[in-house]
């Protein structure tokens, strides 16, 4: 299989000046006439005629300009034939690759992307993903699009970040407030060549709508209300209460629900909400009684129809709004209460027999009315008459048989109580039950009359009937009816029937039996122990079991062991323990910002500070640059976050892999770490020098080692060191490890060799193996402490195969660089390119790639890490002023 193209031509150019691009030759030409022929796409297949061959010399020429986007490569099938047209050789394939030029700009799939995000969303929440394509060669810088937010409207403060590569637009912080800005508009630029200055760019617009959440608490327009309402009246619009809520109008977050907290125990009031206006109308749905309650205090609360957002849930406190209600008195006059009254009439009752009275009640006083006069309204058969002032009802005459028949045993008439002053009339109903036995016929009438007058039991029956009628007329009627019955029966002797006497005897018997029953009661005693009360022992414990019976008594020590987990006093630190698995930068309005990702909430201020205050790496104390949060975490956990390491290195490598535009050498990661059993916690420091206007005054505060490395990264001249060893460069990695004058950081296992001069060695130790953490990096150098220093640059590109060394210079700095577990599929091409350390000292860079699992440049041979514990990939010594000598050496 051909693994690379034999020849190449550049698209969009006249390549004919490079003709012949290839030539074929057969040894058969030595002794016979050979004719060379070619075929394939671009020759005898469309597009025709791109390649032609000189049949005699075998020279292949390209004739036209080619377009990689049309035909990315050609396969020219080459033949050598004799004069008879017979093949003299097996067919050869000449693969011609069309080199890509950046002739296609990025194209966004939409001119305007629409997105929406809830306000108060956490920082780093994904809002939308933009999409752009570039027709240039895939996996090439010409098609590598870098996205960048150019502008934001409103431009008050940047609220969004975009991932340079994935085009994911995320929230920068959790301060999105719909009530402040309900819509954001971003202008995003996508530039190929990874955003390089020579790239082609396209722009698109992002319209981001901020969705409302219920993060505003509603309140009533006024702090209190005062109203008055007439008694005995309903009111459908007693009070209008306007609710103020800043959330989105007409949404459930805005619509209010007013509820009674107290004061409406009688259910007199109701509140109806108008969802269009958010105004609540207080209604009276049950009449109030001035005589019962002259004032009352309503206490109202308000909430939203929707639940409150979790961000303000804790802030919501039920706040009562007072509504003072004054009940106005209304002259009500008199009414019959109850509205009807029942009497019983027998044939014994004669003329002017007084049945009772029916008196109206004055509602304004609650007493019998004194201002009314009574007149009969409906009075069937003219049976009764009422006293005009007294309200006493009398039989006008003895009821005759005819009247009884006309009335069919029942009389129902009305009484009017007329208040002349108020010009009001109220009506009461009189019901009279005519005792039927009295008027059956003339003969029986006499007999019944006799029996009625003599039989006490009959009177008792009358009482019962009356009582039943009263009950049917209502509760109050029952009372009245009972009174009436009592009046009637009071004329007779009260005595009990046999059943009543029997009940009384039974009652006494039961009372007498109670003490006897109690004596035999078990009262929870143990079954079978006899049915009697147990005496309570004299000791206080009584029947309580001792500890030894129920189990061991908990000792004091045990109790003290049961305690809640201790919470560190500073909870903020816990919050800051976030996983910095994703690191990406975003150039925003001229400022570089770096988001650590991982869902943490980072304010814009912190981001700015993170960039501007990158400085002294103090162990666990100082915020050092963009890795501030990470440092805290690392310190807390006592070890390096290998996920972060992996992410950082890989993303850096990837980001700088294909860049070739001029860029200052300005990125430096300094990490020192001492780990292992018994060692103190390590630390991570980072200096990320980005931008042209670099304020490097803080470098003065760095320690010696870090300042040295920072200077190297910045391309500054560093102090020369005496030449440590004439055998430089080292033939093996052992030569660069233990150096005299080394200042190992921490108390790791450093082995210092005396034969080296002052050379800066930054060291690290192995990492303890933990689940989910990268395996320890085998350290082929053999010494205990190593510091990782990573430096990438695109200034002064050196080919990966170049090995530069000049041992004439004495100053040497060992820089060890590691790439840990690159992301699968990441193209590491170019990541091993070294910076041009202008006029600098000699620098040895040791780079190692552990378990790559991805495509690597073919020039790099990576031993299988499973077969050897240590893998050293490249080691280069760079001396800018000397010639380029040496080559890539790989140490298994």
């Amino acid at each position: 299989e051909w693994i690379k193209f034999a020849a190449a031509c550049r698209e969009g150019e006249d390549n004919s000046k490079r003709n012949p691009i290839a030539k074929i030759h057969s040894d058969c030409a030595a002794n016979q006439q050979v004719t060379y022929r070619i075929s394939g796409v671009g020759i005898d297949q469309p597009p025709y005629g791109i390649f032609v061959i000189n049949q005699k010399t075998g020279e292949i020429n390209i004739t036209t300009i080619v377009d990689r986007e049309v035909t990315p490569f050609f396969i020219i099938y080459c033949r050598a034939v004799n004069s008879l047209g017979q093949d003299l050789e097996r067919i050869l394939e000449l693969r011609v690759r069309v080199l890509d030029i950046n002739d296609n700009p990025p194209v966004f799939s939409m001119s305007t992307f629409l997105g929406q995000i809830e306000e108060n969303s956490n920082a780093n929440t994904l809002v939308m993903i933009l999409n752009a394509t570039d027709a240039d060669e895939p996996n090439n810088l010409n098609s590598k699009i870098a996205f960048k937010i150019l502008r934001q409207e409103p431009s008050a403060s940047p609220m969004f970040i975009i991932n340079r590569y994935t085009a994911e637009v995320r929230t920068m912080n959790n301060f999105l407030d719909r009530e402040q800005y309900g819509q954001y508009s971003l202008v995003v630029r996508g530039s190929d060549r990874d955003g390089g200055a020579d790239g082609m760019a396209a722009e698109c617009e992002c319209s981001i709508k901020i969705l409302d959440v219920n993060d505003n608490i509603p309140y009533m327009e006024q702090p209190s209300y005062s109203i008055s309402v007439e008694e005995n009246a309903l009111n459908s619009n007693l009070l209008q209460i306007r609710i103020i809520d800043l959330d989105e109008e007409f949404s459930a977050n805005w619509m209010a629900v007013i509820f009674f907290i107290s004061g409406n125990e009688g259910n007199w009031f109701d509140i109806e909400m108008n969802e269009r206006t958010n105004v609540g109308t207080l209604k009276v749905i049950k009449p109030l009684d001035y005589e019962a309650m002259k004032n009352l205090q309503l206490s109202l609360g308000v909430r939203n129809k929707a639940e409150f957002h979790q961000s303000i849930m804790s802030q919501y406190k039920l706040r009562a709004t007072a509504v003072s209600v004054t009940v106005l008195n209304v002259v009500e006059g008199s009414v019959f209460r109850p509205g009807s009254k029942t009497f019983v009439v027998t044939s014994e009752m004669g003329q002017n027999y007084q049945l009772g009275d029916f008196i109206a009640t004055d509602l304004d006083t609650g007493l019998p009315s004194t201002t009314v006069r009574y007149v009969m309204g409906s009075n069937p058969a003219g049976l009764i008459a009422i006293g005009s002032k007294t309200g006493i009802i009398n039989l006008r005459n003895k009821v005759t048989v005819q009247q009884y028949k006309i009335l069919r045993g029942k009389y129902q008439g009305t009484i009017l109580a007329i208040d002349d002053a108020l010009q009001r009339t109220c009506t009461g109903t009189i019901i009279i039950k005519l005792e039927s036995s009295s008027w059956k016929d003339d003969d029986s009438s006499n007999k019944n009359n006799t029996s009625t007058s003599t039989n006490g039991l009959t009177s008792s029956d009358v009482t019962t009937d009356t009582y039943k009628n009263s009950v049917s007329a209502g509760t109050n009627n029952a009372h009245v009816g009972h009174t009436t019955a009592f009046q009637i029966t009071s004329k007779n002797n009260v005595h009990f029937g046999p059943a009543g006497i029997g009940l009384l005897i039974m009652g006494f018997l039961v009372l007498g039996l109670v003490p006897f029953l109690l004596m035999f009661c078990d009262c929870g005693g143990v079954p079978g122990c006899g049915a009697r009360f147990k005496p309570v022992p004299e000791c206080l414990d009584g029947a309580i079991h001792s500890w030894t019976v129920e189990g061991a008594q908990p000792k004091l020590a045990d109790l003290t062991n049961i305690c809640a987990p201790q919470i560190p006093p500073n909870n903020a630190d816990i919050i800051e323990c976030i996983d910095n698995s994703g690191v990406y930068t975003n150039e925003y309005r001229g400022r570089k910002m770096q988001d650590l990702g991982g869902g943490e909430r980072t304010t814009a201020l912190e981001l700015v500070d993170a960039v501007k205050t990158s400085g002294t790496p103090k162990i666990c104390q100082e915020n050092s640059g963009t890795l501030r949060r990470s440092s805290i975490r690392e310190c807390r956990e006592g070890g390096l976050n290998m996920n972060f390491m992996e992410s950082y290195f890989c993303q850096k490598a990837y980001a700088y892999a294909d860049e070739d535009e001029a860029r200052p050498s300005n990125d430096c990661l300094l990490i020192y770490d001492i780990e292992g059993v018994g060692s103190p916690a390590g630390s991570v420091g980072c200096c990320s020098f980005i931008g042209e206007d670099l304020d490097d005054s803080y470098l003065d505060t760095l320690g010696t080692k870090f300042k040295k490395l920072a200077d190297i990264s910045l391309g500054k001249e560093v102090e020369p060191y005496p030449d440590p060893d004439p055998s430089w460069p080292p033939d093996s990695t052992e030569l660069i490890c233990p150096l005299q004058g080394t200042e190992p950081i921490g108390s790791g296992h450093s082995h210092i060799s005396p034969h080296f001069g002052t050379t800066t060695i930054i060291s690290e130790s192995n990492y303890p193996s933990e689940p989910g953490v990268q395996h320890p990096i085998p350290d082929p150098l053999g010494y205990g402490n190593v510091t990782l220093t990573e430096s990438y640059t695109t200034l002064g590109t050196l080919k990966p195969s170049v090995h530069v060394h000049d041992n004439r210079h004495a100053s040497n700095v060992v820089v060890t660089e590691r790439v840990v577990g690159p992301i699968s599929g990441a193209n590491l091409h170019g990541m091993l390119e070294m910076p041009d350390l202008r006029d600098g000292s000699n620098v040895i860079v040791t780079e190692r790639v552990i378990t790559p699992g991805s495509s690597l440049p073919s020039t790099l041979t990576i031993p299988d890490p499973r077969e050897s514990s240590n893998v050293v990939v490249t080691e280069r010594v760079i001396q800018p002023t000397s010639g380029l000598v040496g080559n890539l050496s790989v140490h298994p």
Partner: peptide, 26 residues
């Protein structure tokens, strides 16, 4: 032997340099 030679464009002094292309195993 039937061989293909391709031009090396990277020569700095403008001289034409030819490389024989050989089949390789991946």
């Amino acid at each position: 032997e039937f061989q293909i030679q391709v031009r090396d464009y990277n020569t700095k002094n403008g001289t034409i340099k030819w490389h024989s292309v050989r089949r390789q195993k991946r």
